[in-house]
Every structure is written in C-alpha cells, then in structure tokens.
C-alpha cells in the first residue's frame, strides 16, 4: 500500500479521538468514492488458487451451501491477470513462495490478499517446519487475516465482509493504483541453500560472514 497522507484532513479531525485511525485518512469520502467502492466491493474476483487443507474449505465456501456468488464475487479465475483477490489458503512453503510472489506481481491493481488460516497468517501448526514460510506477509502485503485451522466457510465469508469494509474505506484520492510511474514489483525470492529474500541479501551476507568468523550473529 502506498503512503497515505493526512495532508488534506482538517487539523481538528486529525486529532479527534472519535475518528478511527483508519478513517482519518479517508474523511473525504465523496459520493463518487461511494459509487466507485460500491461497484468494486461487489465484484471482487478471487483467484482459483489453493495451497493446502484450507483450500478445501475455500472450495466448500464457493459451493452451494455458502455460495460465494451471493457477494458478487462470482468467478474464481485461474489466471492472476483476471483476478482481484488472492486467497492464500494454506501452508506457504519455501518452495512455493517464489511462485506466489510471481503470481502476486502478475495481478493487476487493485489487488487484495486474504491470508486464510493459521498457516498463511504466520506458519500455523507447521511453523517449526524447515520448509515453511512463517506467514505469507513476510513477502506480500496482506489485507485481511483469518485465524483458525481451518477456518469454517463462514469464517472465510466473514473475512470477505471485512475486506468489503476495507474497500469501502478507500478513497479515489489516494488509492495507489492511479499514481504515475512504475508499479512496485516485489522481488521474487530465490531458492539457494535456503530461501533467500533478495531484499535482505545484504543483511544475510553480513551475518553469514560473522558466523563464518565464529562470532555469534546477534
């Protein structure tokens, strides 16, 4: 998400404790925003992309009993290019994270991410595993988290409602996707002796050297 500025908010509102933090940035929700967000929040298309056990509950959510389409989130798209929402439904492994980041980069803005279940949130019961990433938010920004292992289909629906709330609060003025210039692309992690996050390369190098020299890397 881009830096949100409080520049155009009156001073007294900014300091008013009654205004929730989230809204402080978005006090000027114009009617245009309302229409814009109304349309957007009812046509979020998730990506057809399942990782583990939670994906089974995600499919159950899309099936007749819970019927995702009631929210207008009609179609699960198999291609990231046509999707607005990535539901990270399951354990994110080190072997899989490069693909997830790549898929995320391929999704057009506005894009949202739901981390479904304990695993996607922070590693879950498999957190201690050597091939498990401790939460997908280590690499891609997450909009809504759901705990539970697995979350019930209703819990997933609840997260959709939360995401709709979040979408409602966005304003045309400061949404990042109409900015000029390059889009942020998240560097894709590399599989070396272990997972290497290119953003941390320098830090890793330093520490590895320290360890090689026998100092404890604090």
């Amino acid at each position: 998400m881009a830096e949100l500025t409080n520049a155009n908010m009156p001073e007294e509102l900014q300091n008013d404790p009654r205004v929730p933090d989230d809204l402080k940035n978005n006090v000027f929700i114009t009617s245009l925003d309302k229409i814009y967000n109304w349309g957007r929040k009812r046509s979020v298309w998730p990506m057809l992309f399942g990782l583990a056990c939670c994906a089974i509950e995600m499919i159950a959510t899309a099936a007749s009993r819970h019927d995702l389409s009631r929210f207008g989130w009609e179609l699960m798209r198999a291609s990231p290019r046509q999707a607005d929402l990535m539901i990270v439904s399951g354990t994110v492994t080190k072997k899989m994270i490069p693909q997830i980041v790549r898929l995320y980069n391929q999704m057009p803005e506005p894009r949202y991410v739901i981390a479904m279940g304990a695993c996607a949130t922070a590693g879950g019961p498999f957190k201690e595993g050597y091939n498990v990433v401790s939460g997908v938010d280590k690499f891609i920004p997450v909009d809504v988290y759901i705990t539970g292992c697995p979350p019930r289909p209703e819990a997933l629906l609840h997260s959709f409602i939360k995401l709709q709330e979040k979408i409602e609060k966005q304003s045309l003025r400061n949404v990042p996707w109409y900015r000029k210039g390059e889009e942020d692309v998240i560097p894709v992690p590399v599989l070396g002796p272990d997972l290497v996050d290119p953003r941390r390369a320098q830090e890793i190098k330093g520490k590895a050297e320290q360890i090689a020299e026998g100092q404890p890397a604090a």
């Binding site: 590693g123 957190k127 050597y130 498990v132 990433v133 401790s134 280590k138 590399v190 070396g192 002796p193 272990d194 997972l195 290497v196 996050d197 290119p198 941390r200 390369a201 320098q202 890793i204 190098k205 520490k207 590895a208 050297e209 360890i211 090689a212 404890p216 890397a217 604090a218």
Partner: peptide, 15 residues
C-alpha cells in the same frame, strides 16, 4: 539469529 525460518551455511554469499 536470522530472525526468520532460514538457516544458511557459514560464509554464504547471497549476492
């Protein structure tokens, strides 16, 4: 030490 679920061989050069 790595503040993450990773472990590299000593002297590993990620660059």
């Amino acid at each position: 030490p790595w503040q993450d679920n990773v472990n590299y061989p000593p002297g590993f050069d990620p660059l």
